[in-house]
């Protein structure tokens, strides 16, 4: 169980498998699937749970097929006590995420 700060969702039906997201990902989290979509393209998939939500993949994606998520940033100010950290429990099927509390955090969920 590894902690993650980000996640991506790929619209695999629209993805054209250009691989630019794979190239842009600093974490090597993405790869083209061996499967093809209805258009015949090997679509991009998340292959590791180390996504930081940096959005690089979404920025270079010409088809806007990637939605990027991230743990809310430090936004609640000085009074915040806890920081949420999402962890991936199952990366094989639908992603399930649990939120843990850290003793010193910033965001009140």
């Amino acid at each position: 169980m590894a902690s993650v700060r980000g996640n991506v969702q790929v619209d695999i039906d629209t993805c054209k498998g250009c691989e630019l997201c794979v190239e842009a990902c600093p974490q090597d989290s993405l790869q083209l699937s061996e499967k093809v979509n209805a258009q015949g393209y090997h679509y991009a998939v998340l292959i590791q749970d180390n996504c930081t939500g940096c959005e690089n993949c979404a920025l270079v994606c010409p088809d806007a097929v990637i939605t990027v998520y991230r743990t809310p940033k430090n936004s609640a100010g000085k009074n915040a006590k806890r920081e949420a950290v999402a962890t991936v429990t199952n990366v094989r099927a639908n992603m399930k995420i649990t939120v843990e509390e850290l003793p010193e955090g910033k965001v009140d969920l």
Binding site: N7, Q9, T67, Y69, R92, A93, N94, I97, V99
Partner: peptide
């Protein structure tokens, strides 16, 4: 990781 839903995963926010 095949995400079938389009809703934001719990505990995360949309950044793009």
């Amino acid at each position: 990781v095949e995400m079938e839903t389009v809703s934001c995963p719990e505990g995360l926010e949309v950044v793009w």
